[in-house]
Design a protein around this nucleic acid. Sequence first.
DNA 1: TGAAGTTACGAAAGCGGTTTCGTTTGCGTT
DNA 2: AACGCAAACGAAACCGCTTTCGTAACTTCA
Lengths: 338, 338
Amino acid sequence: MNIKTIAQMAGVSVATVSKIMNNYTDVGEDTKQRVLKIMEETGYKPSSSAKTLATKRSNLIGVVFAGELNSDLSHPFFISVLDAFKRQIGVLGYDLLFFSNEKFSQEKEDYWARCRHFQVEGCIIIAGDQVEPSIHMLDRSDIPCIGIDIRLSGDNSAYLMSDNAKISSRVVEHFYMSGYRDIGFLGINRVSEVTTTREVAFKESLEMFGLNMNPDWFVYSDDFEEESGYRAMKAMIARGQLPKALFAVTDLLAFGALRAIREHGLRIPDDIALIGCDDLLACQYTDPALTSVKQDKEKMGKLAAMMLYDMINKQMDPKSVIIEAELVVRQSCGAKSI
Amino acid sequence: MNIKTIAQMAGVSVATVSKIMNNYTDVGEDTKQRVLKIMEETGYKPSSSAKTLATKRSNLIGVVFAGELNSDLSHPFFISVLDAFKRQIGVLGYDLLFFSNEKFSQEKEDYWARCRHFQVEGCIIIAGDQVEPSIHMLDRSDIPCIGIDIRLSGDNSAYLMSDNAKISSRVVEHFYMSGYRDIGFLGINRVSEVTTTREVAFKESLEMFGLNMNPDWFVYSDDFEEESGYRAMKAMIARGQLPKALFAVTDLLAFGALRAIREHGLRIPDDIALIGCDDLLACQYTDPALTSVKQDKEKMGKLAAMMLYDMINKQMDPKSVIIEAELVVRQSCGAKSI
DNA sequence: TGAAGTTACGAAAGCGGTTTCGTTTGCGTT
DNA sequence: AACGCAAACGAAACCGCTTTCGTAACTTCA
């Protein structure tokens, strides 16, 4: 069942059928209706590959996760962003192509090659931990790219990122206002734009508030797993010196820390106050409920879709955007209440 | 940069280049190396649409979420399964095409039409709550489909499902062995294979153990959100009559119930024991940690990929599989310990 | 040495659409 | 009656790759 069949059934040429599908104006109303009716009855759908081949447009957006550790889909934050992105880009007429993570993929081609292979019209690149070199090739290519939490720099790229510096300063400020002076940090041993920014800003904020940085209160996890956060916190506890408040760069790490603290017989927030970051759903269910910084994932995803659409279809100059984040106060940080 | 360019550069015909890419044997070793070198240097990648057009094979698997409520990606259980699926299917040489949910999509075509449009070679269908009619068209089509938690029946379909009946009986048995006799149920008001099976099996198990079914202890949520579980539990509490133990068909509902119970000033498990289902990550972080039934998502996803692959490539008769689930005992159910 | 069989390669016809450009037809105008 | 013009449609080239089949050159073997 192809365009030729339809054309024959309707007694017209394939050209005419094609024109009808593409809203050309030089086709009579009656033939148009006749052909449409036949297409309807036969349930005809044009082949996307033939169309793509002819038009060089695929109506496909590539989804790339730039991470080494977690296999993409397991990251709750990005899933939420992607979910919103997917809905919006769907409305705009695109479908999503998920590339298998490179290290799992059969062929070792870089992402750029795969984008060309599928002729995706644009890409959304979502940052995990470390960024592979092949991401940069894609970034610098002529394919429009939109980055989430990754600072793309290519001419056809833009990115969306939370105001990570402000996140940290807000956390420190909140601790300070709540009367805390001994504030610790649970970070991660990975080079990542996001976490690095948070850490730097955290230290700067401490300084701004005239607080001292006790090295004993800084501890680093090896990856983003809860278990690693647990181990890192255990390590800090083992040192003997504990802060009165702790900021974990990621909720998952905070969960781990929470477990370690509780296991150690300490109470939250009485003995040690805790704030995480990302505002995962699970923050509401921990004991005590975890104060966290909420990034507007819905907004990020939707905005990313619209930006990418504009970049693809209107050759708009890509303009990156910083998204404000919001502190969601719960019981873990010793504030009076919400 | 297409196959013709490569052919010209190497001084051979396009046929030869194509043969080299497809491992034909009737091409000399020296020419082969020469052409490969040129392809390497130029970074040439063949166009997938042209290839698909010519071969009728797209190397694409369609991903369909059959649900009305949650927008697909927000469902933690399915994400985990899909994650495993994606890794395995990636190894087998396929990429994933995510269809926008119908109700969000611009075009109102059914999934089957879209599958044909992209010539996906197979589909993974993941059940949300209600199943749209167009899913059944896809199921009955000639496209190989593998269902997760959805009982597909087409000739080219198979499905993977946890042993939901056993899940319920195991929960009841566990409660019974722990000394509980007044057992309640938190279900959902949606027609869904999975939850319905759990509910039916739950009731049967009660009977088997000679326990009475107090209607007051049965309550139903409107959807799968935590908030709805909270409201449902509130409703049960409002009735005054409370069971000593409660099985929630879904962890998210259990979380909601947990919140309602705690808010009401009751203790878990002392006043009421609680078991959920799915073993979401967050189960470990609730207070108390939630006992749940763990479905082996990794195994399900991987198996689904391999089954689908076989169905596509070996015309194997689809054979559905039931996966055993495992009770993960934590603090919420009043058992002696883990 | 000649017949038969290998090996290495290319010509060309698809695959299912799109798009340019030309042709036919009908109509109003002078 | 002759002309110009717009509307409606089709022929055919093209997109980039696959695959069949034919053929030339080279072996092998009786």
